[in-house]
Design a protein around this nucleic acid. Structure first.
Length: 594
DNA sequence: AGACTCACG
DNA sequence: ACGTACGTGAGTCTC
């Protein structure tokens, strides 16, 4: 049993503040009435800086401000579990957390990014062999769950104090494991400094023109009704167009449209767009269905959903940038996902136009050009591919020219297209079959093409083979900076599983190194941006792109700074190139020329 | 809860 | 004989 002291009077608080100010490091853990940092209330904070002992400070009012100087002192190290969340809670309570030094969730993620689940309870059980009080013990089970706000301070103190104390002991264990696995650098140089950067992006959010989206939702609705009518006329039956099962029945059983050459899923013939495209021309209903699908998707996922996500408190959209989800080291975004906003269509453009800058500001977007392929060239140390990138022209044309041994001028769009597909496919471990399918060539042609590709880019071929071998030898692969992905499936007796694992083995160092690079750039930009333009904000990250809301008068300065910082984030064997665009919104942007 | 489909890099 | 590119999150239907 650990000792938990509740700080429930001024005298105790004075003593505690003095004591805490003299610690070199402590764990803290905020308790709140919910999960959304903008609507929840802070209930209390627990602390631990010694094995077996914890403190709980109930602070419904402003007691927390007594600790402001300590929380904001970068010299006093802060430990915790998912500190991005605590950062946001404190920020909403007037405290700018500084000195983040260890996050047990991020450590557990780096140690095994395939785990999917990094709940403190599970971590404590796995690493300490102890069971801690589950939240349900306080709030009850799913249906009749109550908020922590309705739970007594005594119970929360026991619950929270125990968590802080367990976190404290986890820090020692996880720090050792990070050191043993060489993950210390990625942890200290990338993930830990990134956490408060992401927190700030989530807090700031993005401005949306909700009225514009809803106007188009209405138009989409009307168009969908028209399309449905036409489809039902052709099928001579009304049915739910959103149901793949009903659609399959109508198309293939009632209307007897040929299913030859169509792929199937677990439940029957697939009606995915990819399959329906094969039926284009077979029946006029196909085009209508494709149009219905596209419009319906955009309406429900973006036009209707985004306006619902506007915070009543800030009037903006606050996504979550998840730092411990993907197996490759990328971020993910949810509630809403702002990393899959449509691009390149009529309605897609409308949706992007709804991501607006406030008065006096502009949207600035900067994206890395071909970062994945540049990473391949660098990791593989491939002389020809490096040469192609140093030439600084169109990489796919360079590739086509090198592979077919023809001058750049003679590269046709078709040849360039095939080169583009394979350049792209290399980062996924693509085989001849997939190449043939996506480049629209025969299997034989694809095989020849790949053979030629690897003759010219023999460094790439060696890199791919070495990466597979490494996965087999070590059971894991890693990025340039040492981020790991374990691949136990590489030892499967089933050849198909092994092949899948090999493709993952090839993709992870590429995708992961690119993720490392943009994360490093984000940390550097976040550190430097306030000096360049205090009112400008980094608001989104979309894997190879960063989006900012910048003060109009400082847009040029920011453009220069962002581009330089992204391009200089790390030193590869090829130059990194970032292109900047500026506009009133995310849909209408113009290239920023140096 | 799982399947299907589809939006992004 | 077949299926074949990596990584995500969300809306909808179905059970």
């Amino acid at each position: 049993m650990i000792k938990i002291e509740t700080i429930d009077n001024q005298k105790k608080l004075d003593i505690f503040v003095k004591k805490l100010a003299h610690e070199r490091a402590f764990v803290f853990n905020t308790e709140t009435t919910g999960l959304d940092p903008f609507t929840i209330k802070l209930l209390g904070v627990s602390f631990c800086f010694e094995d077996g002992e914890a403190y709980y400070l109930p602070c419904p009012k402003s007691e927390i401000l007594n600790l402001k100087l300590i929380f904001e002192n970068p010299k006093i190290k802060k430990y915790g579990h998912d500190l991005k969340y605590d950062f946001e809670v404190l920020y909403e309570n007037g405290i700018k957390l500084s000195g983040i030094d260890f996050d047990t969730m991020l450590a557990a993620y780096l140690l095994n990014p395939g785990a999917r689940n990094y709940k403190l309870d599970d971590l404590v059980l796995a690493k300490l062999g102890e069971k801690i009080i589950p939240i349900e013990k306080l709030t009850g089970e799913s249906r009749k769950k109550i908020s922590l706000g309705e739970v007594s301070a005594e119970k929360i103190a026991a619950y929270s104090g125990e968590r802080s104390e367990a976190t404290w002991r986890l820090v020692g264990i996880l720090r050792g494991e990070l050191r043993e696995t060489g993950l210390e650098k990625v942890f200290e140089k990338i993930e830990i400094p990134l956490a408060p950067v992401l927190a700030k992006m989530e807090i700031d959010g993005v401005k949306i023109d909700a009225a514009l989206l809803l106007k188009y939702a209405d138009r989409a609705e009307k168009r969908l009704a028209e399309i449905s009518k036409k489809i039902f006329k052709l099928s001579k039956e009304k049915f739910n167009l959103d149901s793949p099962i009903q659609l399959r029945q109508v198309l293939f059983e009632k209307m007897k449209i040929s299913t030859a050459g169509l792929g199937r899923g677990k439940t029957g013939i697939s009606t995915a767009a990819e399959e329906l495209l094969k039926l284009k021309g077979a029946h006029p209903v196909i085009d209508l269905i494709l149009e219905y699908r596209e419009l319906s998707k955009l309406r429900s996922t973006y036009l209707l959903a985004l306006p619902k996500m506007v915070s009543p408190v800030t009037g903006r959209i606050h996504t979550s940038f998840n730092q411990a989800v993907t197996v490759t080291g990328r971020l993910s975004s949810s509630s809403p996902n702002l990393q899959n906003i449509p691009v390149g269509g009529e309605i897609a453009e409308v949706i992007r136009r709804a991501f607006v800058a406030p008065r006096g500001f502009k949207i600035l977007a900067a994206d890395y050009s071909h970062i994945d392929l540049r990473v391949v060239a660098s990791l593989a140390d491939d002389k020809n591919m490096i040469k192609a990138f140093r030439a600084g022209t169109d990489i796919h044309r360079e590739t086509a020219s090198q592979i077919w041994g023809i001058p750049l001028k003679k590269v046709t769009p078709e040849i360039r297209g095939a080169a583009k597909t394979i350049n792209f496919g290399v980062t996924y471990g693509m085989g001849p079959r997939a190449l043939a399918l996506s480049a629209g060539i025969t299997l034989e042609e694809a095989k020849q093409f790949i053979a030629k590709y690897f003759t010219v880019y023999d460094g790439v071929r060696n890199f791919l083979e070495e990466t597979r071998q490494k996965a087999r030898d070590q059971g894991y692969v890693e990025t340039l900076f040492g981020r790991r992905r374990y691949l136990p499936e590489i030892y499967s007796p089933v050849p198909q599983i092994v092949a899948e694992a090999e493709r993952m083995a090839i993709n992870m160092p590429v995708q992961g190194t690119a993720a490392d690079i943009i994360k490093i750039a984000m940390v550097k930009i976040a550190a430097g941006l306030p000096k360049i333009s205090p009112s400008s904000k980094m608001i989104l990250q979309v894997h190879d792109e960063l989006v900012f809301e910048v003060a109009e008068r400082e847009a040029e300065k920011v453009a220069q700074f962002v581009r330089k910082t992204m391009e200089g984030a790390v030193k590869l064997k090829v130059p990194l190139v970032a292109a900047v665009e500026i506009g009133e919104n995310w849909g209408e942007m113009e290239k920023y020329k140096i």
